[in-house]
Design a protein around this nucleic acid. Sequence first.
DNA 1: TTGTACGCGTTATCAT
DNA 2: ATGATAACGCGTACAA
Lengths: 333, 333
Amino acid sequence: MPATMRDVARKANVSIKTVSRVVNNQGEISEPTRLRVQEAIHELGYRPNVVARSLVSGKTHSIGLIIPQITDPFFPEMVLGVESVAYQRQFSVFLCNTESQVQRELEYIDSLSEKQVEGIIICGTSLDEEQLSQVGERIPLSISAASSPQHTAVVHIQVDEGMRTVTEHLIQLGHKHIGYISDTELDKHQPRQSAFCETLRGHGLADSIVEGCAAVNTIDEGYRCASNLLRQHTALTAIVCNGDPLAIGAIHACQYLGRRVPQEVAVTGFDDIDLASLSHPFLTTMHVPRRKLGELLAEMLFEEISSGNRHGLIVDLPVELVVRESCGARERT
Amino acid sequence: MPATMRDVARKANVSIKTVSRVVNNQGEISEPTRLRVQEAIHELGYRPNVVARSLVSGKTHSIGLIIPQITDPFFPEMVLGVESVAYQRQFSVFLCNTESQVQRELEYIDSLSEKQVEGIIICGTSLDEEQLSQVGERIPLSISAASSPQHTAVVHIQVDEGMRTVTEHLIQLGHKHIGYISDTELDKHQPRQSAFCETLRGHGLADSIVEGCAAVNTIDEGYRCASNLLRQHTALTAIVCNGDPLAIGAIHACQYLGRRVPQEVAVTGFDDIDLASLSHPFLTTMHVPRRKLGELLAEMLFEEISSGNRHGLIVDLPVELVVRESCGARERT
DNA sequence: TTGTACGCGTTATCAT
DNA sequence: ATGATAACGCGTACAA
């Protein structure tokens, strides 16, 4: 049973309010009583109870961070970004791992708001615009997403732009039969996928579109999907992957099927995780500034928290093509 | 201003206590009033305020998790382990990233206990046994460490055993001049390092001991240290690294210096992160069950939390040698 | 079955 | 400069 202000007050022969004053350095206090109080605090090992403080102030100095999977190499850096700016602001962050389950995401949102967090950051949500708006209505919300629900601050990673760039890159290298593998549900309304399709269509390659769907962004899934794709569509000379792990799996699949990368099949990734510069061949991919993403999301959230109103800020985060070896940009025959 | 129990009570024409009863499903309540209350709850969008609840119960249903760096590939899986068992128990976890700074670790500990977390898990601490004991004295504490401070539950990763195994492996392959690279301060009292030295000594190779110190467990640091080591000690035919990223950096250094791995220089890692099975050559390393580690730490913590007393449980977590290519176990000439 | 009154540890408003 | 007292939102004991 830790000591309370009351205990300190008794020991120092002062009122509770006086203790409160020295703890928070507010108001004028005579030097002798201040010292008496501080001594009592020290002797009793008194530490303020933030829960009680929060009940009064209505501020918990904590936020929630919801992500699908911390083991997905995309997220650690982004979490780092969030955590570091939260630390600067003296906020604590609840980490919530949904394992990509909508149900769990909803549970976490409820749990967090019951715990009176002052805001929530969601990255890689499974919720729709409607649901996000509802959440943003009652609590500051900062998300990374393609759409821009009302009441929420959002960071657009320019992922469609990026997908267009990669696809153009492959077309320029002479590819006409290009496959697409994604870990998000295949759906022409997905900005990435539609960017991919439209780029092909823009070059008169509409008929060559071929897609595969992975359950999660892992090497194994990439291997599985690419194997299927390559077996069913022998004309394929390139595979665009929406995630580096998928791409690395795809490269393995090519190697297993005896199709050389990049000479016979070109492969591209997305995100530029550490693995991308260590795979063989080195992966051509889109670089996404993940730490920056986390920092931005956090800063936007704190902006809304401190200002007290939901401006629904929107920021674009550019991505950048990193040409390495897996497309044979220079050697393709 | 969210609705409170009082608001609900007024709306439903009942006392606060009655609302409390239906919210917590306790006591007998007549069906009509229960319905009235539930309707009021729904209409007002009432959500219980966990902060107030915590103040009364003294339980916050949250724990703290302190790690050095989430971007170090060792930690995401371990964090996953902790988070998933916390989720099962309906606990929230505060993620605290110290960036390996003692100062920050101490700040986090204070902040967490002020926030009344019910326990703290620390992995990769910079604190000494004394400091950890003090923390464990006033709050359930679960750590992964080499020593076993009082009042704390600890998981021993059998890392000295592992280091011995790797070293033996190299000696058996005929190596006589073996270097050692670690990201922890070089100190003969470090269990890993002393296991390494003693194994060499046990085989009459005491004179060949050579060590390098890395600042952090990264590929770049491994590259830097291994370069120095190889230049200063040309007789080296093997390098033991206390971390896979270091080992991968070391391999790069060998390649850069024109020394083939594993034919001319053997390299071993530690931890068996994903990278280890993707590097070239594939890395021989010690597998550490990281998710299991997180789960264990969490379970031990919850055990102490629910039982209410500090038994200071101690558990050993075995590691396992994974022989891949980087030592040329079969091809060495 | 339902309500009253008090306490949790802190901050804030007014006095003194 | 210091103190008494009432909140904050909820649970619990004890009544009714």
